[in-house]
Design a binder for these strands. Sequence first.
DNA 1: TTAGGGTTAG
Length: 491
Amino acid sequence: MKKGSGSAVSRLLSPSSLSHGAQQLESLRLFLSRAQRRRAALSADAFPPFLAACRSFPSLASQTHALALKYAADLHPATATALLDLYGRRGLLRDALRVFDEMPLRDPIAWNALLSCFLRQGLAADALSTFRRMTEDGVAFTGATLSAALKACASLRAVRLGKQIHARAIREGDDSLITSTSLIDFYSACGLIQNAFDVFAGVDCDKDAAIHNSLISACVKNRRFEEAFSILGSATPNAVALTCAFSVCSRSSNPHYGKQAHCAAIRHGFDSDTTLCNAIVDMYAKCGELSSARLAFERIHRKNVVSWTSIIEAYGSHGHGVEAWNLFKKMEEEESSNGLSPNAVTFLSVLSACGHSGLVDEGRESFFAMRNKYGIDPGPEHCSSFIDLLGRAGRIEEAWHLYGELSRRSSKKLTSAVCVAMLNACRANMDLARGEQVAEHLLELGDSNPASYILLSNFYAAAGKWERAESLRRAMRNRQLKKEVGNSQFV
DNA sequence: TTAGGGTTAG
């Protein structure tokens, strides 16, 4: 492959060629087979665009992987960074780290790519320790570095460090839109909405959509719905802003503005945007308009896992477990050929739908399919949902068996939510002996949720252990734990 | 030549 072949690969990615997916894939295959024969093809100008193109064609990944690992140590920084980024996007953290570790020269962009890699995996603490390493090693920061570090701080609610980064940005005169947008996100995630407004006020952002949207999102997250509407009204409509609008309506259960926003989305031609359409489905569902939600779902051209999960959740939460289950089966049938499969959130919605409609066999089938069919390890939230389902259906033995496995195998999964589900199951089935064991576990976990105390206290009262019940109530008063208004699911 | 700000499901 000659020098300059990178631009040829870049042309493959031009918008005009995107409609010719098959042709593009064929060209990429050709590039790859040549590269396998001649190492020269891994030159810096050719390989990065090829790797970027691979994001759209996972079928090329395994060959690329073998090829890249073979030459990883000799890669040009740009090529290595593109490779690291590709691994990161595919969730292959180990491979990404290997590429990074073997890089003889790391520029700030390579470090930034590593930060993004951790953040994509939800490893905010690793991102922050990498950020500290950059500081110690004297690596130059870019806007993307600060932005990534702020994202990590937001996710860990690391207020102090985030504020230090803000101070550093001010010291260095960094008032870029990227840094400011990340600052708004960081402050909003930490509940410091006024700081978010202050950052926004200090930026000249007349024409920038992202920073407006960031502030709208900040208002939504902090339940400042009126202000969110007001900023929405003053900004130019774009797909992300409208998606935020639907989110405001969902969270405030106010479909009035949502219908207008829906019309605006159609008028502006945003109705082919899957993310936006998913928000529409959710908005109608949360506002109780299930048939509109279904209609909006059916009209989505390219459904993704969120589209399916939203509609399954919609039916489940409205007590239509059978339809939720049918949709889940339909998803499996129709979408597996498109490489689309349910994820952990989908299974939570399915389990909850089954639990609320007494679909025990279906719930069990989905719980075991998670690991056996899809390779997803059920988390504590899935286990507690399944235990809850079994308890409601009177299957206390099966629930107890699963609970026992969780407490023996991995104590990490024995969360207070799991204990609460098991305790509810014991109470509903009048199994006081087992309930007492679970109650002990719950106390050992040191849970500070007042609802758990009330549940425990009621449990002891039901068992005729009045002294125990009273002492728990006392402990609750002493610790000044108060039951939240409206939080009566356990009592 | 590689990274990088705002949006959707629990």
